[in-house]
Amino acid sequence: MKDLHFTRHRRLRQSANMRAIVRETHLHVEDFIYPLFIVEGQNIKQQVQSMPGVYQLSIDQLETEIEEIISLGIKSIILFGVPIEKDELGIGAYHNHGIVQEATRFIKKHFPDIIVVADTCLCEYTSHGHCGVVEKGGKVLNDPSLDLLAKTAVSQAEAGADIIAPSNMMDGFVAAIRAGLDEAGFEDVPIMSYAVKYASAFYGPFRDAADSTPQFGDRKTYQMDPANRLEAMREAESDVLEGADFLIVKPGMPYLDIVRDVKNNFNLPVVVYNVSGEYSLIKAAAQNGWIDEKGVVMEMLTSMKRAGADLIITYFAKDAARWLAE
């Protein structure tokens, strides 16, 4: 035994405090962006069936919700609108009195310091459920969609949104929105681009929450093929050149290699979206007693930070904030 020479890595794992002082990756409550689904109507707090603990809320329910969010130390929210009426062009997305615009005004009036991120897309507002203008035959048209997306971003900024987060995956959407915001006098409003968004099977529960399931076909002609890695770099680079201020990778867990690639190649803040399918899988397993929910969630969120995420959009934000406070 005296002739053996090896490194004793376990020396730095001998106690909780020893592990804590050498820990490389840390979660902070400021890292989290909490999604909210806003519906038209009054006195509505309806749980999303496929997402236990996540609710559709009417504007009159927001005061209590935001007070809880702030009390937990969460600094940022992202808003998704669920309108009653839909049409071919998604007019509700860019109407001055659209559901997200009205919710933003309410929140900024009563809670001016919280960061409001506005999801900028058309799919929740179109009768066909796609993220852009659709021509006869079902093709989603790129360039005509850009004009509507720019109008949506401007109306959200006018309502008081602190950050615009376009999620539509049309080519040139950052350039169009940046130009629209600048022309309208909102040159200081940043764009949190869904730069790398895959055509993922993990979005199912979100479509229940946002009522945004496509009425025909799928979104594979504009969202990315899950098999592609280099394409993600091309997508992110385009958005950087067009004026993005943040880069989102969506989904999270199945794409941590992409998160690291984006972090290594670009010097903008990287955001990962811990999506609905990831949330629902863990919730279902926890409810069946198959896993330790707290342990799994905190390990998952830590892995996202370790992979390179600066911010995490997650439905677990409130739970994670409570666990961190412990």
Rank of each mutant, 00 (worst) to 15 (best):
D143L: 09
D143W: 12
P144S: 01
P144L: 02
P144T: 03
S145Q: 02
S145R: 09
L146N: 02
L146F: 08
L146M: 06
L146S: 07
D147F: 13
D147E: 15
D147V: 15
L148F: 14
L148P: 06
L148R: 05
L148V: 07
L149R: 04
L149Q: 02
L149K: 02
A150K: 04
A150E: 04
A150I: 03
K151M: 11
K151A: 07
K151E: 11
T152L: 00
T152V: 03
T152C: 02
A153E: 06
A153H: 10
A153K: 08
V154F: 07
V154N: 04
S155I: 02
S155Y: 01
S155Q: 10
Q156W: 01
Q156N: 08
A157T: 11
A157Y: 12
E158Q: 08
E158A: 11
E158P: 00
A159V: 12
A159F: 11
G160C: 08
G160T: 07
G160Q: 03
A161C: 10
A161E: 08
A161D: 01
D162R: 11
D162K: 07
D162M: 13
I163L: 00
I163R: 03
I163W: 04
I163Y: 05
I163K: 05
I164C: 10
I164Y: 06
I164R: 03
I164P: 04
A165D: 07
P166S: 00
S167N: 02
S167V: 02
S167W: 04
S167R: 00
N168G: 15
N168Q: 10
M169F: 11
M169D: 03
M170W: 13
D171K: 13
D171A: 09
G172P: 08
G172S: 14
G172M: 09
F173D: 12
F173W: 08
F173K: 10
V174H: 00
A175N: 13
A176I: 07
A176H: 05
A176C: 03
A176Y: 01
A176Q: 01
I177S: 11
I177G: 13
I177Q: 15
I177P: 14
R178W: 00
R178G: 03
R178A: 00
R178Y: 05
R178Q: 04
A179Q: 14
A179N: 13
A179F: 13
G180M: 12
